[in-house]
Write a protein that binds this DNA or RNA. Sequence first.
DNA 1: TTAAATGTTTAAAT
DNA 2: CATTTAAACATTTA
Length: 291
Amino acid sequence: MPELPEIETIKMQLAKILPGRKIISVSLRVRKIFQGDEGMIVGKRVTGVRRKAKVLIIDLEKNVSVAFHFKMTGQLVFEENDKSQTLNIKKRIVGGHPTEDFVGKLPSMHTRVIFYLNNGTLYFNDQRMFGWVIVDTTHNIDHLPFIEGLGPELFDIDSDKFAKSVLKFKRPIKLVLMDQTVISGVGNIYANDALWEAGVDPKTVSSQMTVDQLNRLFESVKKVLREGIKYGGATAADAKYINLHGLGGHYQEHFRVYDREGMGCLRKDGGIINRFVLGGRGTYFCPACQR
DNA sequence: TTAAATGTTTAAAT
DNA sequence: CATTTAAACATTTA
């Protein structure tokens, strides 16, 4: 579920409270999503938390790291040890796919890996189990095929480089934007919104994009990603229990077209938001102002 | 019952 | 070979 802004949000929060804590033990409730030797991380302290595109990485002493990919339904919940035995949701740090596990009792039936730290517990939950957790040396983590194959984030390149990489393809621009080997970090929500922001039809053949369209799209993607980060990522609008507790982000309150099928375009002269499937993913656009 | 869900991988078809 | 599409992974919700 999460894209770059959602992972960036949980990264920033974990970076404040994890460093210095030692991993006491690890519990693997589901082996299939876990790769590596959990013994490698036991007894080591966290030294930092970082992110590469949609991958979250926790670095530990002795050059060992843990990489997480949330895929569609992964989430991390950190909870301070609570001696009172009472569920104190305010003491939690949550990130990723919003479910009742953000606020419910943990571990839950979706908890796949548990990291017991001093004075806290970190739960990796993932209902669909598409995600993965990999433990290895920091060097090997940084050289995982998936990570090595990632293209740059838009924040790290200029518009010329963006144009060059995009113009090579004859696929629809939306699919190129979401292709992690070309540009990393952009998923379905932000791709849809950025294309609306730039006034570009998602079906536009990449190689036929004009310089003007490319420049607008380059700025638009960065704009929506920055906005996503600013609002703490997106949390499903129907997740009442989360908003109730003040957990989760608010980007969903600023969706341009995503999940707005049948609703009016936000532009005055716009039309009705359409939805169709492109590359197997729900694609939303305004037929009046995206061409 | 069917469709869809913030992602990626793989096989099969073009 | 480059591209595209479909299916797969597994679960929940509308």
